[in-house]
Design a protein around this nucleic acid. Structure first.
Length: 806
DNA sequence: TGTGCGCCCGTTTTT
DNA sequence: CGGGCGCACA
């Protein structure tokens, strides 16, 4: 059967178009709750449409309604609509909402997904056109760098002066711009020791031998195929009657070509985006794509969504005021029907710790329901920072006061060392010839196979022209490896054989037609979940972490358990590996009310009743580096970041800055961010920090400086009475006084199950000894983290390290 | 082959 | 200041 003739992977097209037309005659409730602009965007089905959707204007609603409308009007079958997003989360969300609007037929849109997942789907069908087999593997950044490192060493380049990461970045950059090695402009060839292009070409060659792709290749190979095989392109052009693109402002050149090639035949393309929220320029995104849309698609219908359903007018006005500083915008004016609301609050602090302390207290106050607002739960509050290192001050503080928080977008589950190691074992079991996986774990846990042994294996494999696994086998057989490593290597090689055999039993793979689809009818000889556990046991990997006494070890074992558990949702190991390569998100939301801490980038698309924006200081935000490297363009992107930050807030937005901050261990005095000057004063309430009017710490509600209202010019904030007093206070506080009262020892045993001298474990700080008790707080000398005060509930006896809460 | 010292450098990161 | 990495040593 021709792969093209099937139903594109979905069992949906069952309802004939004629019958669908009848459905279209029924009233369309999904249109009724759209505002005029949204409705216009939904009803303009044919031809190019650009939907400029400001923050909080119901973009996803319009987008999903449009898809539903397309289907209801029988313009296309569900499998003929190409709907592209950037993240899996967005794709999932859209599927969910379309399904809900449509009623039932949710799974019927096989071509709704991310650029990457859709590209994989296309590329698997035509892999041979770019010299790959259809079962190619997908390398992540880590694999990519390791591979490049090998090439760099082989090329005799000083890896110190020319780090592999740098080359990886350049290659990514070229791929983002759809440049294959031959097309890299000679002006850029000098960048990497004069040999960037050469290494790029070698890297591509190496990937081909490994039958592998990196993320950039997924898209670039598709574009290459479309460009050089018009027949293939034509098929897809015919198939995708309608194309929808979310977050269009974030597309790079390669994605742009990908879309344009697919859309140029029928031109039924609808791009949704907001040039003011383009914050991924440093990653190759081209705001130009959205600015140019009308030129690319003449006669495009442009619709602006400007009615905001999220934020109060003060918040919108503040955001608009800031973004107005950018030139070359398409221009939108957000408005809302809401009349009331709090002004954006602005507050300065002495240093970063004060800032964290104050925010912590504010969060608790808002939670209790003061500040003239109804109580706001912790889930409704977020702290958005420019750079992830800023999170630390908040984590430290919240840990100390026992305020539950969650960090969004930290090291992601599938990027953690233990997960990647385990995955490498699974990869080896599925395909023993996976050399990158072999290299990764051949000496993890330690098997006495160091650089020398590994070099021997490499040589043996290369000479015989086989995989490392086979090379190792021959090396063992020929006695080419000595010492204790020999026995261990033999065991490793045989282990892989055994696991591989079990994998084959566990999954029967269909014939040549479709190597990806397992046939469910054959009863597996061994449950793949059990197999995975067995692999981790037999390889000694689990044991390695059990014997590890570092504070992270229990967490890692926990993650491994979680990984194995995740396997249950798949039919076999292959399916799982396939999934993980692209779905790198970490959706293990632990329950419980928690404040969210995340970067501004991670916050795009989210909203919270209460938002804190700390660290608004020149150099930090806007980031010095952005400005140095990208000049005005960089500054404008930072400004968009500010805009994104402010517009995340529904009810209350608080911006803050500190006059002193530790930067790389050095104390530095900071200037308030220039973006603060750009806030329209009429919509800002300047707070004075607590402690200025005789109240102690966290005393009364912050007091507005009355004279600051309305007429005070923005820059004057720093000449304001409050600001000057704060400066004065800064002087007197220069000599660090103890921040917390000492010596108030209450009956410790009544409040805590720990006593002095106990050995305890803390999820973040690791092991330590209790050296003091104050109320419900323990003073602990952590072996790694030093002396800290921590709420007793967050530690357990060192022996029960498995049961750490939090 | 494993450990430890010292040096360097330090944003954002949808896949 | 502190984490990561490479190199020198045991």
């Amino acid at each position: 059967m021709n792969a093209w003739d099937d139903d594109q992977g979905a069992g949906v097209a069952a309802v004939p178009l004629s019958q669908r037309a009848m459905m279209a005659a029924r009233p369309a409730p999904y249109l009724d709750d759209l505002n005029p602009a949204q409705r216009a965007a939904v009803e303009a089905l044919d031809g190019p449409v650009l939907m400029l959707a400001g923050a909080g204007t119901g973009k996803t609603k319009a987008l999903t309604a449009r898809i539903v409308h397309l289907l209801r009007m029988s313009k296309a079958r569900p499998n003929e609509v190409l709907a592209v997003t950037f993240t899996n989360k967005a794709a999932r969300e859209m599927k969910l909402r379309v399904g809900r609007m449509l009623g039932e037929v949710a799974e019927g849109m096989p071509w709704m997904g991310t650029f990457h997942s859709l590209s994989v789907k296309i590329l698997r069908r035509h892999a041979e056109l770019v010299g790959l087999k259809s079962n190619f593997t997908i390398l992540d950044t880590d694999d990519q760098v390791r591979l490049l490192k090998q090439l760099i060493v082989a090329a005799n380049i000083d890896e110190k002066r020319w780090p592999a990461r740098m080359l990886a970045g350049m290659i990514d950059g070229w791929k983002n711009r759809a440049l294959v090695p031959e097309r890299v402009p000679s002006s850029e060839a000098g960048g990497y020791a004069n040999r960037g292009t050469e290494l790029y070409a070698q890297y591509q060659e190496r990937l081909r031998t490994l039958n592998a792709c990196d993320f950039g290749d997924l898209l670039l190979h598709c574009v290459t195929i479309f460009q050089s095989h018009p027949d293939v392109l034509a098929q897809y052009q015919r198939w995708f009657r309608y194309i929808l693109v979310d977050e269009y402002q974030d597309t790079n050149v390669c994605q742009y070509l990908w879309l344009r090639l697919l859309a140029q035949a029928h031109r039924n393309i609808c791009c949704v985006g907001d040039d003011d929220q383009s914050i991924y320029g440093w990653r190759g995104a081209e705001v130009g794509n959205i600015l140019r849309f009308e030129k690319d698609f003449p006669g495009a219908h442009v619709v602006r969504l400007e009615q905001n359903y999220r934020s109060t007018p003060h918040i919108l006005a503040a955001a608009s005021g800031v973004i107005a500083g950018n030139a070359g915008r398409l221009g939108k004016t957000l408005w809302t029907e809401v009349q009331e609301g709090h002004k954006v609050r602005l507050i300065g602090h002495w240093d970063g710790e004060d800032e964290a302390r104050w925010i912590g207290e504010e969060i608790e106050a808002l939670q209790r329901g003061t500040r003239g607002m109804d109580p706001v739960g912790l889930d409704g509050q977020a702290i958005l920072v420019r750079a992830s290192h800023q999170m630390r001050a908040f984590e430290d503080r919240f840990l100390t006061i026992g305020l539950p928080y969650r960090v969004i977008g930290g090291p992601r589950f599938y990027e953690r060392q233990e997960i990647r190691d385990a995955m490498a074992y699974f990869r080896l079991a599925v395909s023993p010839e996976d050399d990158l996986a072999f290299e990764r774990v051949v000496n993890v846990p330690k098997r006495g196979l160091g650089d020398k042994a590994q070099a021997d294996i490499q040589r043996a494999a290369r000479m015989a022209g086989v995989s490392l696994h086979e090379g190792a086998r021959e090396l063992v057989a020929s006695g080419g490896i000595g010492g204790k490593g020999a026995g261990q290597l033999r065991a490793f090689v045989e282990g892989i054989d055994r696991w591989h055999a079990l994998t084959l039993d566990a999954v029967r793979v269909a014939g040549d037609d479709d190597v990806l689809e397992p046939i469910g009818a054959v009863a597996p000889a061994m449950d793949h979940v059990r197999l995975a556990e067995m692999i981790l046991e037999e390889s000694g990997y689990t044991e390695m972490w059990q014997n590890d006494k570092t504070p992270e070890a229990p967490g890692r074992l926990e993650n491994l358990k979680e990984l194995v558990k995740a396997l249950e949702q798949f039919d076999n190991l292959q399916g799982f590996l396939e999934h993980v390569a692209l779905i790198m998100d970490n959706e293990t939301e632990e329950a419980g009310e928690k404040v969210s801490i995340m970067t501004l980038h991670a916050a795009k698309g989210l909203e919270f009743p209460v938002v804190f924006l700390p660290g608004w200081e020149d150099g930090l935000f806007p980031s010095q580096r952005s400005m140095d490297e990208s000049g005005l363009k960089g500054l404008e992107e930072e400004r968009r970041l500010a805009y994104v930050g402010i517009t995340r807030a529904e009810e209350l937005c608080t911006i803050s800055f500190a006059s002193n901050r530790r930067v790389y261990g050095q104390w530095q005095s900071q200037m308030p961010s220039r973006f603060i000057d750009e806030l329209p004063p009429a919509h800002v309430e300047v707070l004075t920090p607590p402690g200025l009017y005789g109240g102690g710490f966290g005393a009364a509600a912050p007091v507005a400086v009355s004279a600051m209202e309305e007429r005070v010019s923005k820059a004057d904030v720093y000449n304001s009475p409050g600001w000057r007093r704060m400066q004065d206070r800064a002087q007197t506080r220069g000599m660090a006084q103890p921040r917390e009262a000492r010596g108030m020892v209450i009956d410790a045993t009544a409040l805590s199950s720990h006593s002095e001298g106990d050995r305890v474990f803390h999820r973040k700080f690791g092991y330590g000894i209790v050296i003091g008790i104050e109320g419900d707080k323990l003073e602990i000398d952590f072996s790694k983290a030093g002396i800290k005060k921590v709420v007793a509930g967050f530690v357990v006896d060192a022996d029960d390290a498995d049961e750490v809460p939090f």
